[in-house]
Nucleic acid binder design. Structure first.
Lengths: 316, 316
DNA sequence: CCCGACTCATAAGCCCACCTTATGTCCTCA
DNA sequence: TGAGGACATAAGGTGGGCTTATGAGTCGGG
């Protein structure tokens, strides 16, 4: 009420950086987005309200304030029910992606929480824990809703220790060699790929890059010591030449997308950027940039119960 | 409208609702996630607080309550600053994806808001508006922070009308033929792909599917009338055999991922599912499942100014 | 023809989550 | 050893969002 959003922002003085003036003031909260999805699915404010556990007037008001916030009518109300407007359908689709990301967050966080006494204890490398595990956990939850999962993240050594000591029922590691004392199965392949902004010269090449070209070109990279960097250095024989070194995958992606140069990243980190063409993949040949992702367990003790379910989920 | 969602939607019970007891009670709100990202980046609660426009005690309390909610310590506080714990690093990465989705939501919503008088008015097909445009707008905002964009979404006919009448400065359409009176350039290719759960028999095939096999197999599909369905029917000569018909792309993905059968979807909708191997692509040959995505403008009036900037962004 | 069941909207009041200001404690560095 | 930064704690205000209670429009059937 007191905050009428006029044409442009009310004085947000903020720091120098260009973007971000408080996302949370312009984007409805997760509860509201969930409610919107429920309305889309159920065709009625009242039923949607019941589904998310609030009363009908609360839902009505919440949708209305969301419409005010966005400046767009989202639903057509009628005495027979509510349907999304065209704009509403679009907004709902965007909302769905936020909610899906939140679900992945939740799945991961929930596993992280119950360090102890969970029915299924998983140890995983950072990359796997970060990018793959939340999705697996969502799938597992769909099959076995009552399975509590706990997660320990660390490097291969840590994972091996936990699995061997029985602190974890199942482990996931990346890398070529399997720690001794463990049986394993390959569940996927992680591949480092070279990407550039669509406008970069390399994006118009016909030929694939060869090892020499890749090693000779200045690249946007994660800092030395990161897993990604290690794989790349190993593949090139320690020759990778950094144009910039950044400390987060996101920073590398943003930098490459803005045209600063070619970057090398795990394909796991690049789902949307590639399909939306914010970045394009540059073929490379003659360089071994892929490594296996493996599930591991103590020799002879094939996973059973929930661990076996999870393993099944992850395998092709 | 080539859209749907809703008409006889009421009957679709979706997947048997899994758990969901209110995501928003288990996931911190967007403001808290933004704050966490700021802490990760700046290494200090106080500086992070300043960046997001709150006071240091507010930030302290907010992070603390987030840790209580998640049951995990996220940051190591010290008199010299704050660093993420291991768990915190993981949570921050998951949080980043939520925030990124929210940024895309915001970019889209902002364009949707200013129907009138914006400096750059874009008309786009539903698919493009849904999946590609938010990303482009984020990129555009990075280059030209002060460009206000408005968006009209509709089918090819609507887009053509708006562009020809001057109500839109630039249009984006999908499909083979370009409406007359418009010049165009291909900016990307949308491809329908066949996907299954990793455990499905097709996922172990060696050979690519041929048209006959695809036409003969019962598929999980969007309902008749949807854009996706039209392209598929055209490619197969109207022969697509539905195993289930669902009214949203998400429902189709979920159903396929749970192993119900093979599905056919636009690759734009499948970024993360593929890289996380929740779904795997089944190669197909002998069927034309791709269509061009084109930018369009009135014959002879090449885009200038912000429209040209946007166009440049979208092209390889 | 009107009653019951459904839809959504409005009004009034409560409550808690979150913010702010004002302090205190600990550490580091010059 | 004192200045300055970083975080924690305490007390107080405010508003957003919830609830209950009610009203109004539409549909369909006895």
């Amino acid at each position: 009420m007191s905050r009428d959003d006029g044409t442009s922002d009310q004085g947000v003085r903020e720091t120098a950086s260009i973007p971000v003036g408080g996302l949370s003031h312009r984007v409805p909260d997760l509860g509201a987005l969930e409610l919107l999805l429920a309305v889309a699915r159920l065709g009625s404010l009242g039923r949607a309200a019941r589904e998310v556990g609030i009363t009908q007037p609360a839902a009505s008001s919440r949708i209305r304030s969301m419409e005010r916030q966005l400046g767009v009518a989202l639903v057509d109300r009628s005495p027979t029910g509510s349907r999304l407007t065209d704009a509403g359908a679009l907004v709902t689709d965007w909302a769905r992606r936020v909610v899906e990301a939140a679900e992945a967050f939740d799945a991961g966080a929930q596993a992280l929480r119950d360090r102890r006494d969970s029915r299924l204890r998983v140890a995983a490398s950072m990359t796997i824990a970060e990018y793959l595990l939340p999705g697996w956990l969502l799938a597992l939850r769909a099959q076995r809703p009552d399975t509590a999962v706990s997660l320990i993240a660390g490097n291969s050594t840590v994972v091996a220790e936990r699995v061997l000591s029985g602190e974890a029922d199942l482990g996931f590691v990346e890398g070529v060699s399997v720690p001794s004392g463990l049986d394993s199965v390959v569940i996927a392949h992680d591949r480092l790929i070279v990407v550039t902004a669509p406008g970069h010269a390399w994006a118009r090449r016909r030929r694939a890059l060869d090892a020499g070209e890749l090693a000779g070109a200045p690249l946007i990279l994660r800092e030395e010591g990161s897993g990604t960097r290690q794989v790349l250095d190993a593949a090139l024989g320690g020759l990778a030449r950094p144009l910039i070194e950044l400390s987060s995958t996101t920073a590398v992606k943003a930098s490459a997308a803005s045209g600063a140069g070619p970057a090398v990243l795990s394909e796991l980190a690049l789902g949307e950027e590639l399909s939306a063409r914010r970045l394009v993949e540059i073929p490379v040949e003659g360089v071994r940039l892929s490594r296996d992702l493996r599930a591991v367990w103590p020799v002879g003790h094939r996973p059973t119960g929930p661990a076996r379910d999870l393993l099944t989920l992850t395998r092709s």
